[in-house]
Nucleic acid binder design. Structure first.
Length: 274
DNA sequence: CGTTAGCCCTGCTGGC
DNA sequence: TGCCAGCAGGGCTAAC
């Protein structure tokens, strides 16, 4: 469930930690994490490489290698990237999936309880193709009212499903879709095409404001999320509706409801969101 | 093309 | 108290 704010937090921490360091050794503890690429092929492309910079695209964390290749991580539900020292301690090995041993005795570890997470390498050509499938970054200018009005078009799917679609906008997940829709006063099941321009304006603003605030608070630490230094975010303390079923809506005092939208647990206030 | 359902995984929750 | 079915969900693919 790490979404844009969580990956951004990790990215900002890892940038100074990893930049300029050399990957001295790769240990693929669980080959499922690099699948379908074989652990050996993965290691060959990463081993000995220098990390030039660290960046983010949507929910993907990117290590830009000197070879021109990009080492891509996706944390999915329970993935964790952590700054570590060598050797990796015994009680640190539960759910350990991948270790990048770095020059100078430091390391980057990848833990993942549910094994949904991914690590893979893309060539410059592949990167270009890959990012084309993703929508704009929600915090950039290109994501605005006009864009939102255009993509809702005459689509019939629920607006929340549209927001979760990474080809529409990159980085919004279940938490921030719920919170942004609440902030915009829009019901998550509203057919996207019914969103008018005033609502589109509110929604674009709500998405940006929600993500910006979440980044300031270093993300939401619910379930297993921790940042690259093992720390917690605090945006979860400001949730208006997400995971607050049965609790009072901070706006009207009514009761927050939980439904399923596109197979995802969805929280909203029936009286504030129309 | 647009949309939806099912699958991958395993720790945790809720019901009995 | 102990057990276990079922839930959680991001992104991909298949199917409609």
């Amino acid at each position: 469930m790490p979404e844009l704010p969580e990956v951004e937090t990790i990215c900002r921490q890892l940038a100074p930690y990893l930049s300029g360091k050399k990957i001295a050794r790769v240990k693929v503890v669980d080959p499922l994490i690099t699948a379908p690429e074989k652990a050996r092929a993965f290691s060959r492309r990463v081993n000995g490489q220098t990390i030039e910079s660290v960046s983010r695209r949507g929910k993907y964390l990117l290590l830009n290698l000197k070879s021109g290749d990009t080492l891509v991580f996706h944390l999915r539900m329970t993935g964790r990237l952590t700054q570590a020292r060598l050797p990796i301690g015994k009680n640190y090995r539960q759910h350990l999936r991948l270790v990048l041993e770095l020059s100078g005795g430091s390391a980057l570890t990848f833990h993942d309880a549910r094994r949904f997470g991914k690590a893979f390498v893309l060539s410059p050509d592949e990167v270009e193709i890959y990012w084309k499938k993703l929508g704009p970054e929600p915090l950039e200018r290109s994501f605005n009212v006009r864009y939102l009005e255009r993509v809702v078009g005459k689509r019939t799917r629920p607006i929340k499903s549209l927001l979760l679609d990474q080809s529409i906008v990159a980085g919004v997940g279940n938490i921030y879709a719920d919170e942004a829709l609440y902030r915009a006063g829009i019901h998550p099941e509203r057919p996207a095409g019914e969103i008018d321009s005033a609502e589109a304006k509110r929604l674009a603003g709500a998405i940006k404001a929600t993500l910006r605030r979440a980044i300031e608070l270093q993300g939401s630490s619910i379930d297993t999320y921790r940042d690259a230094r093992g720390g917690s975010g605090s945006f979860q303390n400001t949730f208006r509706v997400h995971r607050r079923e049965g609790k009072p809506c901070p706006g009207c005092g009514g009761t927050v409801k939980k439904i399923k939208v596109g197979g995802r647990g969805t929280y909203f206030c029936p009286s504030c969101q129309k």
